[in-house]
């Protein structure tokens, strides 16, 4: 085996472990502000993902150990779990995770080969197939009279006999749902925003969740696990597009800050759009990729059939990655710089 004979300390496992670690602030805030239900969802998704990964590796004749320990399946599971409503029924979580791992990851060739982000494929399949169940969000604790305990949350998720009243008391529409519904009822944004679910920026509780994801994302950036291009361009895409619309008709379009801090944007910008496998690879390509995803997120939130657009926006941009990469190949060492005559 020829040179080099030494390697740096990085590994796929290390990269994935940092991604998981950077999600922990978000998970902590989730538990603190929305109750412990999310832990059930996360655990269920993790177990399902690992089982599916092991089964698929076996079926495809690959060794299990290096691929299970690379933690990529767990990252997929967590990203999906954090995108799902926190009280989604167990079969919804299992179906989404299985679809993500089996179809979106392994049927496309496994680690490194999937052209779409597996978690987002799982999410998209669920929201298209089960739109009703995908609304079972636990409301922020400060707005719920009797929050669910861990056991009660598990009961809800596993379809246990929970009185409908108890459930109704804790689930409520997310700010994005509320905005959408309000706009459909011909209310203006200002009127809608007076509802208690809307906090300062992105919704009561939700804005703190977004801030925690932002913090985790900045940690990843500081560790150079992710580059700055995709998140920044994504946020810029969201902010500029939403700001443009809001500027022209503040009554019909949500404020840019609101859109930024509806938590799926932060999760998407720092953790999902930065998925290297399904994202663009060139620096300029990443700017285009991120901005495009941000722009499409707002477009889908505003005019699409679903309240949130992050998943579809990212999947659409995944689709255009080969094209983006091909046309944004950077200049190599010794090539004439742009606007500069080739030196001879």
């Amino acid at each position: 085996m020829p040179a080099p004979f030494i390697i740096g300390r990085s590994s796929v496992t290390q990269v994935m472990a940092w991604v998981l670690a950077a999600l922990l602030p978000g998970v902590g805030v989730y538990v603190w502000l929305f109750g412990p239900g999310i832990l059930v969802t996360l655990s269920l998704a993790t177990v399902t993902a690992l089982a599916a990964e092991a089964a698929m590796l076996k079926a495809r004749g690959y060794p299990a150990k290096p691929f299970l320990t690379d933690l990529s399946a767990i990252v997929t599971a967590w990203l999906l779990a954090l995108s799902l409503p926190s009280l989604a029924p167990w079969w919804l979580i299992v179906t989404g995770t299985l679809f993500a791992i089996v179809v979106a990851k392994h049927l496309y060739g496994g680690l490194g080969q999937n052209i779409f982000n597996p978690a987002m494929v799982g999410y998209a399949v669920l929201i298209v197939s089960f739109p009703v169940q995908m609304t079972q969000w636990a409301g922020p604790l400060e707005l719920t009279a009797t929050p669910l305990t861990l056991a009660q949350s598990a009961m809800v998720i596993f379809g246990g006999d929970v009185p409908k009243a108890t459930l109704d008391a804790v689930t409520m529409a997310t700010p994005l749902d509320a905005l959408r519904t309000g706009l459909l009822q011909q209310h203006t944004v200002d009127e809608i925003m007076t509802q208690p679910i809307f906090g300062h920026y992105g919704g009561t509780g939700f804005e703190w969740l977004a801030a925690a994801f932002l913090a985790g994302g900045l940690l990843l950036w500081a560790l150079r696990i992710i580059g700055w291009q995709v998140p920044l361009a994504f946020l810029a895409g969201v902010w500029l597009t939403a700001g443009f619309l809001h500027f022209f008709d503040a009554g019909r379009f949500g404020a840019p800050w609101f859109h930024l801090f509806a938590p799926s944007v932060m999760l998407g910008a720092f953790f999902i759009a930065t998925d290297p496998v399904s994202g663009a690879t060139t620096p300029r390509g990443r700017l285009i990729f991120g901005f495009g995803a941000g722009f499409l997120t707002i477009v889908i939130r505003t005019w699409g059939g679903y309240p949130d657009g992050v998943a579809f926006a990212i999947l659409l941009m995944n689709l255009s990655v080969p094209l983006i990469d091909q046309y944004t190949q950077p200049r190599v060492y010794g090539e004439a710089r742009k606007g500069e005559a080739p030196r001879s």
């Binding site: 290096p66 691929f67 680690l111 580059g227 290297p276 496998v277 994202g279 690879t281 190599v332 060492y333």
Partner: peptide
Amino acid sequence: LPCIRCTRCADACPAELQ
């Protein structure tokens, strides 16, 4: 393991290749 397209190699390449 398979390439995960993380482009650390591109960041490290002194010839500025991909």
